[in-house]
Computed example of a mutant assay.
Amino acid sequence: MIVPHALEIGKVRDVHIATTRAVAENGWFGRERSKQLSFTTLSVSVPPNRDPGKLQPGFNNPNPLREFTIAARNDARTEAVFIDRIQDELRKRPPNEREITLFVHGYNNSFLEGAYRMAQLYHDLDLPGVPVHYSWPSAANPLGYTYDRDSVLFSRDGLEDVLRQLHRAGSRRIILVGHSLGTMLVMETLRQIEISDPGWADNALGGVVLISPDLDVELFEMQASRIATLPEPFAIFVNARDRALALSARLNGRTERLGNLTNPEALAELPVTLVDVTAFGEGGLQHFTLGSSPLLLQILGQSAELDATFQGDRAGRTGLLPGTALTVKNATQLILSPQILLRN
């Protein structure tokens, strides 16, 4: 799977990975669970001349000209070595870019799929700072939903440990990002940290982003209410036409999940921002619109505009577009549209 000459072909993104997956017979991390964390850094070659949002993963005999490819692997023997590596990366950056983006993948993801997705988001959004990926033991099988949900609960302590160590690494801020079922892992972990260390999340994190969260709305309310002060910004990307979440809702005997919620009244008591990206969905499951829509990536890549949105007041005057923001008590809903690009 490792193609060293890919270092000379595509744009290389180093992804630092902590995982509770056990090592499989082929030497890579598989679906089985491990009680001990493992650490590695993968150099991912992003193929040249690709469209933003397009992710073609390379596995066996990958073609670096067309596929995301692993160009190098550098395992860390201990957690201390892993954190030292991240600290070195932080020191190399300007002070205003000494940030960490920690990504937690979702349901039905293999080890490499999660690493490739982290590299793609980091590349397409031109994120500052150091990309870190937390890889929990998904079965990587559409029929493995129950196994994946149990693996989420299994992996809470590991994510807490990683978050606390990253906080000690001295970054300017940490942005915690979860996708799909990985958002349950994010919320459960923040909840358990809050129980033992009230106020930690707000002090340690510079923001939380939940992408297409496969979470029961009432469960999310209970998790969030246990956290004294939610980190800000706290953004939830939703898509009313997310077919994967529609299926999950039916399987769970509900009408909707948090990720296809379009009415901010359900979260009125929480200081969160629902970012509605329904207008950008194009066929398929529409379960990762944030990372697969070139137009949406272009909008989100305008970081100054996005920062203005999140830092705006709660009266609906977010500065993004007149009439696109709705405020219900503490919650804000932003309805993004491709028309935003017409202003530029």
Rank of each mutant, 00 (worst) to 15 (best):
M1R: 09
A6Q: 05
E8R: 12
G10C: 11
K11F: 04
V12K: 03
A18G: 12
A22K: 14
W28A: 06
W28C: 00
R33K: 15
K35Q: 11
Q36V: 02
L37R: 07
F39R: 07
T40W: 03
V44M: 05
V46L: 06
R50I: 15
G53L: 02
N60S: 12
P62Q: 09
N63V: 07
P64H: 14
L65G: 03
R66A: 12
A80T: 14
A80H: 10
V81W: 04
Q87S: 13
D88Q: 14
L90E: 13
K92G: 14
R93V: 05
P94F: 03
P94W: 03
P95W: 01
E97W: 01
T101H: 10
T101A: 13
F103Q: 01
Y107T: 03
N108R: 10
N109F: 13
F111K: 05
E113R: 11
A115Q: 02
Y116T: 08
M118K: 04
A119H: 05
Q120F: 03
V130K: 01
H133V: 03
Y134T: 04
G144Y: 09
G144Q: 09
D148Y: 06
S151P: 04
V152K: 11
D157N: 13
G158F: 06
L159G: 05
D161F: 03
R164G: 02
R164L: 10
L166Q: 02
L166H: 05
R168L: 12
R168I: 01
L176R: 01
H179W: 08
H179L: 11
L181N: 10
G182N: 03
L185V: 03
M187L: 15
E194Y: 09
P198W: 04
A204W: 03
A204R: 02
L205K: 00
G206A: 08
P213A: 13
Q223P: 00
A228Y: 02
E232A: 14
P233L: 12
I236T: 00
V238K: 06
R241T: 11
R241M: 07
A244K: 04
N252G: 14
G253E: 10
R254D: 07
T255P: 00
E256L: 13
R257G: 06
N260Y: 12
L261V: 10
T262A: 13
A266V: 11
P271R: 06
V277M: 05
T278H: 08
L285Y: 03
L285D: 11
Q286C: 04
G291L: 14
P294D: 06
Q298K: 15
L300S: 01
E305K: 12
E305R: 10
E305F: 00
L306I: 15
F310T: 06
D313I: 00
R314M: 05
G316W: 02
R317H: 12
P322A: 11
P322N: 09
T324R: 13
A325Y: 03
T327M: 05
K329Y: 05
A331L: 00
P338A: 09
R343H: 09
